[in-house]
């Protein structure tokens, strides 16, 4: 590893001021579980790292506001999400997803903000955040702005965040009483492998009919994406599994999976099909 400059600002404003919009080798780091691997491999050679470890306050908080929206600070470690009673109550699918997200050592260190802002398509929470209609609050030198989770992921390791912006929090809107969500992941090698396919589904249903659904896939594709055709195929249909097959079929057609050591394009397409159906079943029975 080549020596680099490490800054440890004490405030969010200070941290933002240390970022450099023109230099991709200046990078914020929270838990460092992903970035350090890239640095050790020599793939990423930073000139400056801005450690966020001294930042306090809402960035580390989980709370529910007066509208019932769930606020998750960007520096909340994944293990805190996993164990938080508030998260379990307001977004049980998030708690459940965290239990098999990496391992306990990583979850104790990795943060929600890093997990999202790293932009690795294999992460588990991004498709679920898309399905739950979450929004991200980004803070930069020009103030703050909100980005829908569905617009946050723009490519492999690429997000809609500007280089001089930091993620401050993720907000999951209060669930309506008729909605439920689920995330299913499929690992092709060991059980704790990166997912080969991850599918999140959120459905609103009334009297056995799906009013609407949001479906998102990750890992098989170069970024987490919404499955618009599959969502359309399920809208207004019954919650019987037969109608899920149509959505699964539509999903298989609309994705362009990337081949890698975890599976060929053709195989991953089949796994998208299977897991869209399984995610819908799980979401509509939870």
């Amino acid at each position: 590893m080549i020596p680099f400059d490490l800054q440890e600002p004490a405030s969010l404003a200070e941290a933002i001021a240390l970022l450099d919009p023109d230099d991709p080798s200046v990078r914020p780091v929270a838990g460092g579980t992903a970035l350090m691997l890239m640095m050790k491999a020599g793939l990423f050679q930073p000139t400056r790292l801005i450690s966020l470890r001294r930042l306090e306050g809402d960035l580390r908080r989980v709370h529910v506001d007066e509208h019932g929206d769930l606020h998750l600070g960007a520096l909340v470690p994944l293990s805190k999400l996993e164990l938080s009673p508030l998260v379990a109550e307001h977004a049980p699918a998030v708690s459940e997803t965290c239990r098999t997200l990496s391992n306990v050592r990583v979850r104790n260190v990795a943060t929600l903000g890093g997990h999202v802002a790293h932009g690795d398509p294999h992460m588990d929470l991004p498709p679920l955040l898309i399905a739950l209609g979450a929004r991200a609050r980004a803070v930069g030198p020009r103030g703050e702005r909100w980005i829908d989770a569905a617009d946050l992921f723009v490519g492999y390791y690429q997000t809609a965040l500007e280089r001089d912006e930091l993620l401050a929090e993720i907000v999951i809107p209060a669930p309506s009483p008729d909605s439920s969500a689920a995330y299913v992941k499929f690992t092709a090698l060991s059980a704790d492998d990166w997912p080969a396919v991850g599918v999140a589904a959120a459905v609103r249903r009334r009297e056995g009919v799906i009013l609407d659904a949001v479906l998102a896939v990750s890992a098989a594709t170069e970024k987490p994406i919404r499955l618009a055709a599959a969502e359309a195929a399920i809208r207004g249909k019954s919650t019987s599994s037969g109608s899920f097959d149509e959505a699964a079929e539509a999903a298989a057609h609309e994705v362009e999976p990337l081949a890698d050591i975890r599976g060929s394009t053709a195989y991953k397409r089949e796994m998208v099909r299977v897991h869209v159906r399984r995610a819908l079943i799980k979401a509509s029975h939870s």
């Binding site: 691997l37 491999a41 098999t100 391992n103 090698l189 060991s190 059980a191 704790d192 492998d193 990166w194 050591i261």
Partner: peptide, 16 residues
């Protein structure tokens, strides 16, 4: 070797 790391060369974990 294109998977020369424990991230991509998967040995069994406790869940396996």
């Amino acid at each position: 070797a294109v998977n020369a790391s424990l991230a991509d060369y998967k040995i069994p974990g406790i869940l396996d």
